[in-house]
């Protein structure tokens, strides 16, 4: 019997699959399609202190193996998430959720995290210091060890739940950034967020998306994500939620061998809304094929 259970900072998950923030809304679109309680957890839409409409449209472009998006953290704001979205979610999802939090200043991150910390449904706070689409916004924190450290310290000071810092791949060296989060007291690391990309429309001769640049994700970025998870696993003794281009059960196993304890699935949900249940159903077969009885045993196995 294949054992899919993993543990993230004391939170036991039935399996390592977590739909990634921004590809799963607040869960209900998918709850209409399948029982989302089969998931390990899910990371809800990046939420900020104030409501945000986000970027003008168009917000999407693509290549044969990826999408590029610039939604720029559209969300109803933390108070409405607490008063409306979480109670609605509670009816369809009975596990702990990962609360993805964005921000524009150290104080805003701290305030937002302090408010969500009181919510019983939240198992982990995932602090997004890496949205690539917000000018002078959170990516500036995520590309600088001092910024990551300041946000992490401020959030840890006002929260009791495990704090995972979600890092940007758009840096020269991920290691000092992950180390800064660890030293500042992070309980874990989430990586990678999207890579900064662009497409240009040949007819208009202008960038396809209104924000010009956007976050590039999909199966094309899997090797970059694996490399960075591998590097961070070597450098930092914290649990890792690995993500970036995961579209199959094999990719999940590969991400765990690189060093991930749990695995987020992002762009794949937007192309195939049943991507997560399909990957979950296929995991035991892939485990058997490679002689894996417990997923816990393979974390960091490539090192």
């Amino acid at each position: 019997m294949a054992d899919l259970k993993v543990t993230l900072s004391g939170l036991e998950l039935d399996n390592p699959l977590i739909p990634a923030s921004g590809t799963f809304g607040y869960g209900y679109e998918f709850a209409e399609l399948y029982d989302i309680n089969m998931l390990g957890s899910f990371s809800f839409k990046g939420t900020t202190l104030e409501p945000r409409f986000g970027s003008p449209t168009p917000r999407f472009a693509e290549t044969p193996s990826c999408r590029i998006n610039a939604v720029r953290m559209q969300n109803p704001g933390i108070d409405r998430v607490i008063s409306e979205e979480l109670p609605r979610l509670k009816k369809v999802f009975h596990k702990k959720v990962v609360a993805n939090i964005g921000g524009f200043s150290v104080e805003e991150y701290a305030e937002c995290c302090a408010r969500i910390d009181k919510e019983e449904q939240v198992g982990i706070i995932e602090v997004n210091v890496s949205c690539p689409n917000v000018h002078n916004g959170c990516m500036s924190f995520g590309t600088d060890p001092l910024g990551v450290s300041a946000v992490t310290k401020a959030v840890k000071a006002v929260t009791t739940k495990p704090v995972y810092v979600k890092l940007s791949p758009n840096v020269t060296d991920i290691v000092p950034i992950a180390a800064a989060a660890a030293e500042a007291g992070a309980d874990g690391i989430s990586l990678i967020n999207t890579l900064l990309g662009m497409r240009i429309d040949l007819r208009t001769r202008k960038p396809v998306i209104a924000n010009r640049m956007g976050g590039f994700s999909g199966s094309a970025i899997l090797p970059v994500a694996l490399r960075m998870v591998y590097q961070v696993y070597e450098a930092v003794k914290l649990p890792i939620i690995g993500m970036g281009g995961v579209t199959s059960a094999r990719d999940v196993v590969e991400m765990m061998l690189a060093g991930a304890t749990a695995v987020e699935i992002g762009a794949a949900n937007l192309v195939d809304p049943w991507a997560c249940p399909k990957i979950l159903a296929d995991l035991p077969r892939v485990m058997e094929q490679y002689g894996i009885t417990s997923l816990k045993d393979i974390i960091g196995g490539a090192h």
Partner: peptide
């Protein structure tokens, strides 16, 4: 009509502002 990411409400790719909000 709007350029869409997913088509089923998950990604917020095709949001418009209306008198009743986003």
């Amino acid at each position: 009509e709007e350029r869409m990411g997913c088509g089923f409400g998950a990604c917020m790719g095709c949001s418009i502002m209306t008198k009743e909000g986003s």
